[in-house]
Design a protein around this nucleic acid. Structure first.
Lengths: 200, 200
DNA sequence: GGCAAATGTTACTGGTCGGTCACAAGTCCG
DNA sequence: CGGACTTGTGACCGACCAGTAACATTTGCC
């Protein structure tokens, strides 16, 4: 009920909290939400269940925090790509897809955490899911904006195409054997798409 | 151990088996594998746990059977579409995407069962997963074949593009709010793609 | 009718789940 | 030092999990 009286001088809440969240994020991402119990989390974080429930209301809140944190790093990654190639929207788009493939090929890649959570939580009404859907809508509008910036003849349609390709790449990671993952060839596809559908 | 002595004259093994499998399929698809327990399945099938374990070795076998059955109906649906527009590969491709959107918009749609299972079973080594990956590879080669039949200048690339769009549509169903699902506009995208990349 | 196979019933196992309790031990700072 | 706050410990709760045993009932076929 009372939300910790902002004790004396501490800026960060605690150390354990971070450890627990980090452990949970790793396990949730690798194995899935339902496949990971709180016991596994606290053990991975070298702590105990009480410390978990002193910092989080429930496992569900931990899931929500996991999703938020993943979105945060996702946004930062995109922002970095954008910054690297400011004023060159075509290059920005291409870099987004290149980064996607690099990430997907790296060891320990299991697709998109958000989408995976949405799959596991279908049938429940979980706050994390609406969160994920909002972020997805953002991604779509970003692609549309980029398409417009790149001088697309039909920005909205190109944006939708790009987001579908993007989702196709990310979400099919777990359905294909790694060597047959079709995303491996997405770079040239996107390049050609941009050339065909943008004036200039 | 002994596999049922092919008793006298019965072609189908039993009625309960079908009921159980059907109930399991519905629940697995709607709620997910991990979210559904055997008790829920037998209750939905109006039977009992013993009948389940007399017909299936384990829940895992039930999952595998679920995946196989889904693939079966999936193949048949595609075959029907192909048959409807034989000798017109462009139309076949377009119809595949139209059917996809129709299905996705229908009530009680939760994306692709196979992909969802692959997500839920990541981190485990489950026979169903390799099964799913094989089917996925098939889909890719079908798209490539269709692209070639349609007279694509680069059939392999067009095939990959189509499969990425396809996966993007199907797998993003749960990550987007229904009204914002980008697949709604995939028909025109595919049409334009075919016009741009096929001679004839 | 009678017999055998298929189904149903009840209760049970051992394990794990998310979550909580009271209490002990550690840490930090004045 | 002492006192306050943060962590750790171990036992525990009720619920559910997948799977099994022994026994009763129904079904279908000769």
């Amino acid at each position: 009920m009372l939300n910790s009286v902002e004790s004396s001088c501490c800026p960060q809440k605690s150390k354990v909290r971070d450890r627990i969240l980090e452990a949970a994020m790793g396990l949730f991402y690798r194995l899935g939400i339902k496949a990971v119990g709180v016991d596994a989390i606290v053990s991975e974080a070298n702590t105990n269940k009480m410390s978990l429930y002193r910092n989080f209301e429930s496992k569900d809140e931990l899931v929500l925090e996991f999703v938020k944190a993943q979105e945060q790093t996702f946004r930062e990654r995109w922002r970095a790509i954008m910054a690297e190639h400011a004023e060159d929207p075509k290059e920005q788009i291409k870099r987004i897809f290149e980064a996607l493939v690099e990430k997907g090929l790296a060891g320990g890649s299991f697709g998109c955490s958000g989408a995976n959570v949405a799959v596991e939580l279908r049938g429940e009404e979980h706050p994390a899911v609406t969160h994920i859907q909002q972020t997805r809508a953002e991604v779509l509008s970003i692609f549309c904006q980029l398409a417009a910036d790149a001088g697309a003849t039909n920005p909205q349609q190109l944006g939708v195409t790009l987001v579908l390709l993007y989702e196709g790449c990310v979400l099919s990671r777990l359905s294909f054997a790694k060597e047959q993952w079709p995303a491996l060839q997405v770079a040239e596809i996107v390049e050609q798409l941009l050339n065909q559908n943008c004036t200039q």
